[in-house]
C-alpha cells in the first residue's frame, strides 16, 4: 500500500498527498478521496441501519402499535414489539491544531495542509453518512469554531480554507479543557495536532474530551523530516514557534533525536491506550487512507448503540 504510487483502481484512491495539496479546492479533494476510498471498500456508506432487526420485546402500554409484530401475535396470540438497530445521527467534530509548528513540510506538503485535507475528507465522509459535522481550530486559544450541524459541511470547508497557522501553540490544556465543557452531546471527536508537549500533559489535555461519552480519535501528524531527522548540514535551527535558534550538527545528534521522538510517540501511544483513546501517528508523506480506515473502524463501533 504505497502512497507514492497511485493505485490502479479508477478514482483517486491513495492519491499522493502532495498532489492533493495542489488541487486547492477542499471540497473537490475530499469528495475525490472519499468516493475513491469508499468505492475501494465495496461497501455502501448509507446502508440503512434502521432495517436491521435486533430483537422482540413484550408490549407495554404506550408503545407505538405500528411497531407491533403482527405475525408473532398471529402465531402466539401475544403482543410483541419489534425492535431494530438504532440509527443515530452523531455529532462529529474535528479539533485541528493550527499553531505555527504545523506550518512545516519538507516534502511539498505542510503538516497543516495534510491535516486540512484530512479534516475535509473526514468531514465529507461523515456528512455523507448524514452525521452532524463541526469543526474547531485552536492553537493556544480557540481560533475558529463551527458547531456540529448537518448543514455545516460547507461552513466547515470554508473555515478550513481560510485558516492559516500563524501563532505559537503554547499548551493545549487551556483550549481543549474549555472545549471539553462545550461538547455536551455524545459524538466523535477527532484531534489533529503535532503534539509538541510532554505526553503526560497532552493526555491530560485531551482526556477530558471523553468525559461526556465522546468517542475520541487522535491523529498525530508528523513530517518525515521530524521523524527521521534527515538533515545533513550543520546549521542553525530556528524554532518556528519561539524563534529560538541553536546550532545543530544533525549527523552527531540524529540517533538521539530519533530515539527521543520514538520514545515520545511510544509514550503517547501507551498513554492514550490507557485512557482508551485511539491514537494514530500520521506521516505526511503517506496517503490518507490509513487515517480514514481508523475513523471508519471507530465509526463502526459507534453504530452499535441502542
Amino acid at each position: 500500500m504505497s502512497g507514492q504510487t497511485p493505485g490502479a483502481i479508477p478514482g483517486a484512491r491513495f492519491m499522493d498527498p502532495v498532489v492533493l495539496a495542489r488541487i486547492g479546492n477542499l471540497e473537490l479533494v475530499s469528495r475525490a478521496v472519499c468516493d475513491g476510498f469508499i468505492n475501494g471498500l465495496h461497501k455502501a456508506p448509507y446502508f440503512g441501519a434502521s432495517v436491521d432487526f435486533a430483537e422482540h420485546r413484550g408490549y407495554v402500554p404506550g408503545d407505538d402499535i405500528r411497531r407491533m409484530d403482527w405475525r408473532v401475535w398471529a402465531r402466539t396470540d401475544r403482543y410483541y414489539i419489534k425492535e431494530y438497530e438504532a440509527e443515530t445521527n452523531m455529532n462529529f467534530s474535528v479539533l485541528l491544531d493550527v499553531s505555527k509548528s504545523m506550518d512545516f513540510g519538507s516534502r511539498g506538503i505542510t503538516k497543516f495542509d495534510y491535516a486540512r485535507i484530512l479534516t475535509a475528507c473526514l468531514t465529507n465522509l461523515v456528512h455523507h453518512q448524514r452525521d452532524r459535522v463541526g469543526f474547531v481550530a485552536f492553537d493556544s486559544e480557540v481560533v475558529a469554531h463551527v458547531p456540529p450541524s448537518a448543514k455545516h459541511m460547507d461552513t466547515v470547508l470554508h473555515t478550513l480554507d481560510r485558516l492559516k497557522p500563524g501563532r505559537p501553540g503554547g499548551r493545549m490544556r487551556g483550549p481543549l479543557h474549555k472545549l471539553a465543557e462545550h461538547f455536551g452531546r455524545r459524538g466523535v471527536l477527532v484531534v489533529i495536532s503535532d503534539f509538541y508537549e510532554d505526553p503526560e500533559e497532552i493526555v491530560d489535555a485531551v482526556t477530558p474530551l471523553r468525559f461526556r461519552g465522546n468517542d475520541l480519535i487522535v491523529f498525530h501528524v508528523m513530517d518525515p523530516a521530524e521523524l527521521e531527522f534527515g538533515f545533513t548540514d550543520a546549521q542553525a535551527f530556528e524554532d518556528l514557534e519561539s524563534g529560538e535558534q541553536m546550532p545543530v550538527v544533525p549527523d552527531a545528534m540524529r540517533k538521539e533525536y530519533v530515539s527521543l521522538v520514538k520514545a515520545h510517540t511510544d509514550a503517547l501511544q501507551q498513554k492514550f491506550s490507557e485512557v482508551r483513546v485511539d491514537y494514530t501517528l500520521l506521516d505526511t508523506s503517506k496517503p490518507l487512507d490509513h487515517a480514514l480506515h481508523r475513523y471508519l473502524s471507530s465509526r463502526e463501533k459507534k453504530l452499535r448503540v441502542r
Binding site: 512545516f104 546550532p247 552527531a252 527521543l260
Partner: peptide, 26 residues
C-alpha cells in the same frame, strides 16, 4: 564559517534541546 549558512526553520526544538549539547563538536 559554517554558522553563516541558511537558517533551518524547524517546527520545534523540543527534542533537539534534549539531546546532549554537541555544539563543541560543531
Amino acid at each position: 564559517q559554517r554558522e553563516k549558512k541558511q537558517i533551518m526553520r524547524f517546527p520545534s526544538l523540543m527534542f533537539v534541546q534534549r539531546v546532549p549539547y554537541k555544539s563543541i563538536q560543531r
